[in-house]
Design a protein around this nucleic acid. Sequence first.
DNA 1: AATGAATGAGCCTTCATTCAT
DNA 2: CATGAATGAAGGCTCATTCAT
Lengths: 202, 202, 202, 202
Amino acid sequence: MSQTGSRKAASQDRRAAILQAMLELIAERGFHDTPMSMVSQRSGASAGIIYHYFDNKEELIHSLYTEVKIDYTRALMQDHPENLPPAQAFRQIWLKGYQYHREHPQETLFMEQFENAPYFEKHPQVPETEEALSRMLALFSTPEGKFKDLPLEVLWEMSLGVASRVARQEHLSGSLGLDAQKLDLMALACWQAVSEQPSAQS
Amino acid sequence: MSQTGSRKAASQDRRAAILQAMLELIAERGFHDTPMSMVSQRSGASAGIIYHYFDNKEELIHSLYTEVKIDYTRALMQDHPENLPPAQAFRQIWLKGYQYHREHPQETLFMEQFENAPYFEKHPQVPETEEALSRMLALFSTPEGKFKDLPLEVLWEMSLGVASRVARQEHLSGSLGLDAQKLDLMALACWQAVSEQPSAQS
Amino acid sequence: MSQTGSRKAASQDRRAAILQAMLELIAERGFHDTPMSMVSQRSGASAGIIYHYFDNKEELIHSLYTEVKIDYTRALMQDHPENLPPAQAFRQIWLKGYQYHREHPQETLFMEQFENAPYFEKHPQVPETEEALSRMLALFSTPEGKFKDLPLEVLWEMSLGVASRVARQEHLSGSLGLDAQKLDLMALACWQAVSEQPSAQS
Amino acid sequence: MSQTGSRKAASQDRRAAILQAMLELIAERGFHDTPMSMVSQRSGASAGIIYHYFDNKEELIHSLYTEVKIDYTRALMQDHPENLPPAQAFRQIWLKGYQYHREHPQETLFMEQFENAPYFEKHPQVPETEEALSRMLALFSTPEGKFKDLPLEVLWEMSLGVASRVARQEHLSGSLGLDAQKLDLMALACWQAVSEQPSAQS
DNA sequence: AATGAATGAGCCTTCATTCAT
DNA sequence: CATGAATGAAGGCTCATTCAT
């Protein structure tokens, strides 16, 4: 059984290596400039065996997306502070999102590409993400701090979407000079955008 | 001269037809799932003649990007209101941006894809866009209304970037139920994000 | 008539320009890397009009070959010395051949390529060449100086063939350091090869 | 190991079949009238697999040239007689050269074409050929028999160059009626051309 | 006669996927 | 399970030739 165990482990390693290779290559070159032969080479797996783990290239990419999305969601929710005023909670989550994207540029580029690719059938919802999202939302439906009355998608774009895109731009074009103070200002700006402001209308 | 003129006109028509076909197809299928043969078919031009108008596929796409970008910029600046309070000016521009994206989903999808494609060398700056951008910026460096002290790229993502991405999502996933009131709220939210707020609570 | 004459002259000029362009381009790039469009460009003739002068690319090349071959033959026979001892006559002709090839590298490269191209149907004999050849031969069937009893083609390769190939090599690889003395030695060597030697067997 | 061996053998066979097909086709039709699809068909290999063995068409042709050149060189040096008077040694080598070209018309046509093709960058020296050439030269720098004081390229054209071109002509235009006696006479003629003659008449 | 835009067959090459070993 | 040679359908692009103007 220990043998079976190690075989299984080796198998999981190989699967992971393939996913990792695909992730790196897509970030570097894009979907279509990433031939399976290159994934094979980079991952150390033979061309044939990849089709043992994944039905085809498309399915491999969908699997990768699911894994990355879960990883990202976990990062967002990790060490989640309980009992914090909404503004603070938002700030922390926003900063964690930004940090994730900065520390995982490949994942960021990949998600961006994937979500922009019209030839990929709509990816099924990732349950982990859905659940985390609703947990997050609950934090911001309190008397002390509410979101504006806008669709969830819009709120997302105004907050974590901005974090993602700014982090991606920083990665691609070098630094934008965002120090801790500027990051705080950005988190605040997003909070001002999504939250009900005391005396809004200028 | 009328003969030369009509020949020129026909030639321009064909060029435009090719660009249009490429635009539609990229929006529908993406760069790499758009073979030149399909562009040829859709545009009614023969496969060979495309290379009379464009050096190669890549150059065709770059040309398309330039044209679309200019078109978009024009839309943003059209009927530009002089002597408006910054908050109002911002609101108008934001709404025009949003409107453009809603009315030009293909252009929107295309720009998004193009700007996300790692295999496209940096496209040369489009002068029209640069100029419009600086004209816009001038509107928001007044005592009555200033932008937050954040890089231009960040401000863009928090404002017109949001308009683009929300419009794109609406196009892809059907309506998000954004009526005029919600759009106003969104424009305001973006303004709150990018502008210096009177008493920013911590 | 003067108009007709000048029209005819212009027409001939154009024809010549086309042939010249093709000659240059083939020498520089070879048959197959010489598109008709390039011939059109270099010659200043439109793509369409070329087919007014020549049936197709192949016929154009055959016409060029005929012209070049006649030109070459004329050069060989020009100022032909009468009443010279065979050895002297041979030397003069050989040197004229060599000189032609040095002064006309494009023609030389073209003839070489043409005669080596398996896809060109056998070119019909050029009468001018045939006639010149037999006039030349007559010079070397005298008691004082005879050719060896070998087929004409062999004698050709041992004499003017060598001149052609050496001149071509010099052109391609820069100088081989062939001064007047060496050229004389080469002419002599060829004469020794083709002529009956007094006491041959070493 | 026998398995690996046979796989290797099969692989070598296929490589050889591709080279052979290319050789035949170039001899029949020339480089540019030999599409890869035809090489694929003639060799029995699929179109794609050719690129497993060779980077591209050009590299395939260069590889072919190297192989043919080595083969030719081997033929020239095979059973090389030691301690023969230079005139005899020359005669033997010349005849072997001629014989090779007669027995290998495809190789002959191919080499001729290759060496005449302006679009092929200079092929890297083939070491085997270089070495054989210098071994040959040594035979003809003795008191009893010397070459004329002419560049090596010239001597080559006057000797083995002639053998090649005559053999090629015989192949293309049928027999020139060259029996053993005539061949001996040709070998002698070439020797007379390249060697210092006792009393060279002017 | 002259132009040059247009055609479309064909070329070289790539690559997702399969399958004999 | 694993390998990697093999397949063959495209894909981007070229170019000899035609034809509307």
